[in-house]
Design a protein around this nucleic acid. Structure first.
Lengths: 322, 322
DNA sequence: CTGAAAGCGCTTACAG
DNA sequence: CTGAAAGCGCTTACAG
């Protein structure tokens, strides 16, 4: 186990300076920050002290009970176990206001690094603080946080919309969770707009559905009466399943009367009958990739990178040609 | 923040003794152990040291991607956030052999306490080590680990079986995940046997389904041909959904040809059509209860207790009278 | 089994 | 911005 003294020696500075750099308190020149960080990374230093605690990383996700994020979290944990790091969790519950507090709580555990999924990286207060090495997951990188693992959500939105148009649909409605809670939903809608414009079709305004603990009481009667779409794109699979349930309660069959498609590719979508048409995102491998990138940054002082992973359209049975 | 010196003073011993007791190394008399533990609990002492790390607890569950355990974990995290504790996660992936390693990894972070869901508490190697205050969740208590939060799984198995019998079913099949991976499944089957015996019906042997990453490719053709049940009880909702899919692929309708019921009450069961008949377990409140019990034990030196929570039969549409 | 004391690894006024 | 030095909180041979 490397000590701070060894780090300071290697960085050519005093214990005091090394301590200040690694704890982000007190002043330090940019040069010293670089030297100390590099030395610490090369020695695999972790602020474990005499207590000998295992190093930990912190993970912030909107909700553990959303299968997409549960899948990310699970694969992050599996990857970190191999690397000998503990994994601490925090949830924002899709509330941007809670993100900063959640990250502050994680920082209390002196994590080696962070993996964050926020509502909007360009405005999140969680990204204001000086953070240890940080990887954004499911969020596009920012100037200050250039390390990110994402799928091309805009391209995915465009692809599923183009697929529906190819099946003969013209009145296609984009139904979304709260845009403020998910930049992914916003990007997917932009892709919808792209595809509609390319085909010269009139796009509809997105309808945002407030998330209230679940979608099992979703009421789409007003929406269906006023907009009468032949196809609905839900901004995620959980919502898509809620939409299918809501349509059935109104006596509408899927895909007989209305076609439905989603995003994410959650396991449960394959179990329902007919299986859900969706854009499959590799959540588990995205989590593992984010974990590996973070370790590379924290332990090998590797540069931040933006990794974009591939998605695939899965043709279930919930979309029909008209 | 209480220091070890304060704990030692309150316990009437030296720093050295207090350190030995709390770290479980070196010798200490039973009397001293009690005194020091009590003093530490009263002062809310956490081995944080100068590093000022937040205290953490460790949670072991079979899988984060199972909605039942995701729900537990989420509510544990919410409860612990209020109490100022971090939450570290570990997964066994339903493999008893990995439980001991997973707990050992958690112990490296010096947790204040542990919340564990194991495959079988009576045989798990994870429960051999000397552990900090520990609460079993979804597992029955043992002599050595008397703190537990459970639902009456045997009673639940009996209730759902009795319900099916009341609906006129006689050939009822219990379909289960691997018994070795879940004492809950075993207890639910025992409840099935209870109910069948009470009604003077011939029980069928449980059919165990190996879990291979999901149940979307489940094949029940052999089972249906050889046993021809009119109703199937799945040992959990995830499996029940897989069963419904498998039956539909064989051209059998639910509940027209076969009735299906499950256990757990996962959210997705309410979204499918017809909604799943199931025994609803209050996973979220069980997690919060376990967290509160653990805090009470670790911080107030409260005695270990076994808390049994109520379940409810939710009548969906997947069971029909015959 | 217990404690006095040495000493580890770290942080933080303080001086420059 | 940086370092020498004091000192914190803890652990651990060592002696009894």
């Amino acid at each position: 186990m490397a000590t701070l003294e060894q780090v300071a020696f290697r960085a050519g500075c005093s214990l005091a300076t090394a301590s200040r750099v690694l704890n982000r308190n007190g002043p330090a020149s940019d040069l010293m920050v670089r030297k100390v960080r590099r030395a610490a990374a090369e020695l695999g230093y972790h602020a474990a002290g005499r207590l000998g605690r295992r190093p930990v990383i912190g993970v912030l996700i909107p909700s553990i009970t959303n299968p997409v994020f549960a899948s990310s979290l699970s694969s992050i944990q599996n990857r970190m176990l191999v690397a000998g790091h503990g994994v601490l969790i925090a949830q924002s519950n899709y509330d941007p206001a809670r993100e900063a507090d959640a990250v502050a709580a994680l920082l209390n555990d002196r994590p080696t690094g962070l993996i964050l999924t926020v509502c909007d990286p360009s405005t999140s207060d969680a990204l204001l603080a000086r953070l240890p090495p940080t990887v954004l997951l499911h969020n596009l990188p920012t100037a200050q946080f250039p390390a990110a693992v994402t799928a091309d959500n805009r391209g995915a939105g465009r692809e599923v919309t183009t697929f529906l148009i190819g099946m003969g649909h013209r009145r296609i409605l984009f139904l979304s969770g709260n845009f403020a809670a998910s930049d992914r939903a916003r990007l997917r809608y932009k892709g919808y707009l792209d595809a509609m414009a390319e085909s010269g079709l009139e796009p509809l305004d997105a309808v945002q559905i407030p998330f209230v603990g679940g979608y099992d009481q979703l009421d789409l009667s007003d929406v269906m009466t006023s907009l009468s779409p032949t196809a609905i794109i839900a901004s995620n699979d959980l919502l898509a399943l809620g939409v299918i349930g809501a349509l059935k309660r109104e006596g509408l069959s899927v895909p007989g009367d209305v076609s439905v498609a989603g995003f994410d590719g959650i396991a449960i979508g394959r179990l329902i009958d007919p299986p859900l048409t969706t854009i499959e995102m590799p959540d588990a491998s995205m989590g593992a990739t984010a974990a590996s990138l973070l370790l590379d940054m924290a332990e090998n002082a590797a540069p931040a990178r933006h990794l974009d992973v591939a998605y695939t359209l899965r043709r279930g049975g919930t979309v029909r040609a008209i």
